[in-house]
Amino acid sequence: MILSEIEGRIMSGEWPPGFRLPFEVDLAQHYGCSRMTVNKVMTQLAKAGLIERHRKAGSFVTRPRAQSAVLELHDIETEVKSLGQPYGYRLVSEKKRPSNTEDRRLLELTQATPMIELLALHHAGGKSFCVEERRINAGVVPEAIEADFTVEPPGGWLIAQVPWSAAENRIQAMSATAEIARLLNQPKGSACLVVERRTWSHAGPVTFVRLTYPGDSHMLVARFAPAT
């Protein structure tokens, strides 16, 4: 109960980054438990990266990292707002063209189809948060041809417009290329976390997207249940 309550206060923003937690002796008195129990809770919070412990100074809430659910489709705007930061978005480029060999490989296409290729940058609190490289199968989603992705991010638009029947996530660590480094305002070759996702509808492959995050500002979370 102690762990979940403190964790909830941190994740909800009630205890924001930099907030100093009550001292262990005060928490023990508040919860009516031993100081050893509180110490174990604080150790777990520190291992989870939610707090930083400083001898004599106390324990402080760390800057939270964005969390993505590995097994769910999520919207980047929601990620950013969960951090309590203002969200920003910029479409860098858009190309409407016939599908090519790379499209067919990424989307497992069996025939030629019109394609939309997008490059976008998402911001959190005015800073670069994520680079989005996306390909949309306009043969399955013809409405995307007329969509204005300078105003609305394609991820949220697709989730709202196209019922998906299957999805696949692939997660890997990569070094930032020159272009990615420039967009993320990171040194070339710096560590990045990359999430590649494909989705399908009953009509066929819908989209392939590659989301690249600075490696020190994002983590992935998955929750499992035992098989019955």
Rank of each mutant, 00 (worst) to 15 (best):
D148H: 03
C130V: 13
A144T: 04
E179F: 01
P163K: 09
H122R: 08
G155D: 02
A120H: 09
V131I: 15
P154K: 08
H123F: 15
A120C: 14
E152P: 00
E133R: 15
A124N: 06
A167S: 13
A181F: 04
K127Y: 03
S175C: 05
I116E: 01
R135G: 01
V162Y: 02
H122K: 09
R134H: 01
H123K: 11
V131Q: 07
C130Y: 01
A181I: 07
R134Y: 00
P153T: 11
W164I: 15
T177P: 00
A138V: 06
I159F: 08
I159W: 02
E132A: 14
V151P: 00
I145W: 01
G126H: 02
R182E: 12
A176L: 12
A181W: 03
F149H: 04
A181G: 08
E179C: 04
I145C: 07
S165T: 15
Q172W: 03
A178H: 05
R134K: 13
L118V: 08
G155V: 09
E152G: 01
A166G: 12
S128A: 15
E179M: 11
V131G: 06
G156W: 03
A167G: 13
A181Y: 07
A181V: 05
A124K: 08
V141S: 02
G156E: 05
K127R: 15
A167V: 07
E133A: 10
G155S: 10
E117M: 04
W157P: 04
C130P: 00
A166H: 11
S175L: 13
V141K: 01
G125W: 07
V140P: 00
V140H: 05
A167Y: 04
E146V: 15
E117V: 12
G125N: 04
A138H: 02
G139F: 05
G125T: 08
S165C: 11
A176E: 05
A120V: 07
A176Q: 05
G139V: 04
A138E: 04
A144Q: 03
A178L: 10
L121Y: 07
I145V: 13
A138G: 14
L158G: 03
S128P: 13
R170C: 10
P163Y: 08
E152K: 12
N137T: 08
N137I: 11
V151T: 14
L119P: 00
N137G: 06
A176T: 09
A120T: 13
V162G: 03
P142C: 09
N137Q: 10
E143Q: 15
G126R: 04
G126P: 04
I136G: 02
W164G: 01
T150A: 10
I180W: 00
L121D: 03
I159K: 15
S165K: 13
E133H: 13
A181Q: 05
I136A: 06
A138S: 12
S175Y: 01
H122D: 06
I159D: 02
Q172Y: 09
I171C: 10
I116N: 01
G125R: 06
E168W: 12
H123T: 08
A124Q: 02
E152T: 15
L119V: 12
A181N: 07
N169E: 06
W157M: 10
E168S: 14
A173K: 14
I116R: 14
G126I: 07
E143I: 10
A176P: 01
